[in-house]
Design a protein around this nucleic acid. Structure first.
Lengths: 120, 120
DNA sequence: ATTATAGTTGCACATCTATGCAACTGTCTG
DNA sequence: CAGACAGTTGCATAGATGTGCAACTATAAT
């Protein structure tokens, strides 16, 4: 009676044929890093920024203008994205250009958006 | 003087050769749905659950036992995941089995974890 | 019907996070 | 140097979110 898993006699027959795929072993640190990345992606406005940056590098004021948001707000969001290394920045004169940190990010974003569009 | 974009004379030469990829047009609703999905993924404990469910269906008490968490906590987290349609549940006698809602989710999770492992 | 096991829900509380605005830094121009 | 434009940072506040615990529901067994 000390069992918590339903793998013995009081369990139904559901799991007999289930193919136990080898679970990915993920250490706590990685898990937290991954969660942090997802959390950074978990805001509509930040996601908008990433979607724009997927097309090309943009400077902060351009992003603010296109998205019709106050510039400090955009800068803040970019800061969050940068702290998770989702974007990188580059200064060019008066302007600071932001771009996706690497191609992976694009896949991540696109995947999520696709999934959001497909269902429902 | 009303320009916000640095595309005219006060702009440096950085963007001349930039390949403006066609941006994905994403409507607000989709953007919010996507963000909500990412937000649901943005918690280490919830991510842990999904990683476990990637291997096979599990009932709540099993998840609670393996992750060493109070059962109500696990149930709560599963609720959040279910509200975003990341997992589905199925009752079998006394047990409720949870599994990933579809194969897409697995890709989404794996992608994020991979990215978290690769960098730094 | 009573008891035990499995899950869910509700509530209170602490924590985090987003937001707006003002002040500051940095860069170029005249 | 002063002024204008581009970004960043700090701070206060309101709203969202995670957590723990207790109470409740559901299913099965005796």
């Amino acid at each position: 009676m000390s069992e918590n898993t339903p793998r013995d006699e009081d369990s139904p027959s559901c799991d007999a044929g289930d193919h136990d795929r080898q679970p990915i072993r993920v250490d706590d640190v990685t898990c937290q890093r991954a969660a942090a990345i997802f959390r950074a992606l978990g805001d509509p406005q930040r996601l908008r920024l990433l979607i724009m940056l997927e097309a090309r590098e943009c400077c902060v004021s351009e992003l603010a203008a296109v998205l019709d948001e106050p510039l400090p707000a955009v800068s803040q969001r970019l800061r969050v994205l940068k702290s998770e290394r989702l974007v990188s920045s580059r200064r060019e004169g008066k302007h600071v250009f932001y771009g996706l940190a690497d191609g992976h990010i694009s896949r991540l974003v696109t995947n999520g958006v696709m999934h959001a569009m497909e269902e429902s």
